[in-house]
Structures are given as C-alpha cells and as structure tokens.
C-alpha cells in the first residue's frame, strides 16, 4: 500500500476525461473529487498506519515490549477514528477548461492541483476542437434537442447527401470569410499572409464569435445525419442551432440528437478517461500521459507566440511552468 500523501503529491497536473452526457461539468469535477478523496483515504494516511519493522527479541536484553509488535500510535487523539478521514473532496482542486454543456459528451481537459497553471496556457493556445454532431430531420423543437417541446413537423425525403454537402460547404465558407477579421488583421496585408502561411488562422481572443473551419458530412442515412465540425470559440448551443439552421436551409427541419467532442487540440479520445476510470490510480497515470502534450511547441500556437511576453517564452522553452500567463481558465 502506498503512503497516501505520496499519492497526493503525484496528483498535480493536467488530465483528460470523457464527459458523459446528462451531467454538468461541475458534477464531473465533484465526482472526480469524491473519487480521489475516497481512493486516497483507502491508503495509509496517518503516520501510525505505516507498518513498522518487527524486531527479533534479543535474549541478552530484557525488553518487555519488543515481543509485541511495534506500535506508533502514542495518543488515541491521533487515531483515524477521532480525526476522521485525512482527505476530503475540496482538498483536490480540480478545474476544467472549455466546458461542455449538460447534453454533450466528449473530451474534457481537466487539471488537478498545480496543474491549473497549464490550463491558462491551454486556453491561450486556442486549440482547434473537433465535434461529431448528429442531427435528425423531421422535427423542430424549442431548444433544438430531442427533449424540447416540438414546434414543427416536416418532411425530409427530398433531402439528398449532395445537397447537404453543399449546405455544409456554404456554412464553412460563410464562417471562414471572417477568419482574418477575427484574427485582427487586414485581409490584404503582409501580416495576414504570414498568419495564413504559418497554419490555421486563429481568432485573436476567446471572445470572438464562433469560427467554423471545417464542416463535413460523415454519415447520412435519413432521417439521421452526422457532421464533423472543426471550430474555435464555439459553444454547444451554437452547434445545435447550426443543425437547426441547416435543416431550414434544406426546406425541412432538424433537431440535434448528439454533440460529441472527439478532440481538443492534442487531447483526443484515446487520452480521455471513462467515468468508471476516474480513480486516483488512473488519473495519476493519465497525468503522466498528458505531460507529453504540454511541451512548449504544442502549447505555443502561432498567435500566442506573438502575444506572449519574452520571459514567458523563455520559461516555456526551458520546460518550466508558464507562471506568468495571467489569463484565467475558461469556465464556460
């Protein structure tokens, strides 16, 4: 059995969970905190719970107590039954970046303990997020989800995949039109050329309107269809509304039956821990895995290099934690 505080010390870093649908992100955090407290309390947490070395009785020395087992509890007031469990859930500072709403599922990047310092860097990096959004033709509801109040029924047999492809392309083009505006550069400038040449043109900050970089149909079997959407600064409600508007564009109506985030920058489904794996052991293992995703070249996307101050860059390049990045983590 490992010494509890040793495990507690290991619980510092960034990890990645698969948020199930139907629960809020805050419930996920509470769930993880509860599990961690329970797991660590299962390990020896008080000094007297450590096993002491047993000593062979020495016949030359008349020692009364060595025949018994060594004990370390000197006063009962130090006992676990008196002091209670060593760890309680709020001892584990768990945070997440770029949350998901209640009805969506998918990759959620979380931090525990001092790992929170990385979250601001992750947020600043403005990673691309990839969603699989499932829609269903034939209905329209007040909140775009199947559980809402049905506002409208419609037919959908005239919808073909080719038409849906076209609409998706329109959506993508319509968003990318504003790509340089959101990035804060003039479209015809040298700056814009350099940004575009460096790779994906990210929005200037996290308050710009949602930007969709890619929208493709990956599954089409009427009345259901699935879109793969690459975006930055989106919200899940925005994506649900997008499905609704695609439905209207196709002379029909559609509801959004599933929103699932399959990638958050370098964090993919492979890294994500399922609900049943939210244990101390798995999280510690996951922290070690995710550590490789937090190298400076991954955290510093092109735009944040221009923004970040020189010493921050130096720190990251040296492999230190980006302490000077002051922007708080996104808790939307």
């Amino acid at each position: 059995m490992t010494w509890g505080p040793t495990l507690y010390r290991l619980l510092n870093g960034v990890f990645c969970v698969y948020k199930p649908k139907g629960v809020h992100c805050n419930s996920v955090v509470e769930h993880i905190q509860r599990n961690l407290a329970k797991d660590l309390n299962g390990h020896p947490c008080y000094p007297y719970e450590r096993k002491m070395r047993e000593i062979e009785p020495n016949p030359n020395v008349k020692t009364p107590s060595v025949t018994t087992e060594p004990r370390t509890l000197t006063t009962l007031s130090d006992h676990k039954l008196v002091l209670g469990e060593r760890y309680i859930p709020p001892d584990f500072r768990v945070h997440f970046v770029t949350g998901l709403n209640k009805h969506s599922s998918g990759v959620l990047v979380c931090s525990v303990g001092s790992g929170r310092e990385y979250l601001s860097a992750i947020k600043m990096a403005r990673y691309l997020r990839v969603y699989h959004v499932r829609g269903k033709f034939g209905w329209a509801t007040d909140n775009f989800s199947p559980k809402g109040k049905i506002m409208n029924r419609s037919t959908y047999h005239h919808v073909k995949k080719s038409i849906l492809d076209k609409v998706c392309a329109t959506v993508q083009a319509g968003h990318q039109r504003f790509m340089f505006d959101y990035a804060g550069v003039t479209q015809d400038s040298q700056e814009a050329y350099e940004l575009a040449a460096a790779g994906i043109v990210r929005p200037e900050h996290s308050d710009t309107p949602p930007m969709i970089y890619g929208c493709h149909v990956i599954d089409f079997s009427l009345p259901d269809f699935t879109l793969e959407i690459h975006s930055i600064n989106e919200t899940q409600n925005y994506l649900m509304k997008l499905i609704h508007e695609i439905g209207l564009e196709l002379r029909s109506t559609a509801i959004c039956t599933q929103v699932r985030r399959i990638r958050y920058g370098h964090f993919t489904l492979e890294h994500a821990l399922l609900c049943k794996h939210w244990t101390a052991q798995e999280i510690i293992r996951n922290i070690a895995t995710c550590k490789h995703l937090l190298t400076p070249n991954r955290l510093l996307t092109d735009l944040s290099i221009t923004e970040a101050e020189g010493d921050v860059l130096q720190q990251l390049a040296d492999g230190q934690k980006p302490l000077l990045i002051k922007q708080g983590p996104d808790k939307s």
């Binding site: 059995m1 490992t2 010494w3 390990h43 020896p44 719970e49 450590r50 096993k51 002491m52 070395r53 000593i55 020495n58 020395v61 008349k62 020692t63 009364p64 107590s65 060595v66 060594p70 004990r71 370390t72």
Partner: peptide, 22 residues
Amino acid sequence: KHNEHINVESNFCEEKREFSKA
C-alpha cells in the same frame, strides 16, 4: 519480572517504508 531492570532499546522499532492496514 517487573522488578527487574528494564531496558528498552532504541531500536525498539524502526520505520520502514512499508505500510499495512491494521
């Protein structure tokens, strides 16, 4: 034999980094 001189050695117990429940 409580009247006998009792010497409790300091090596009575030494910590070892192994742990077990009661």
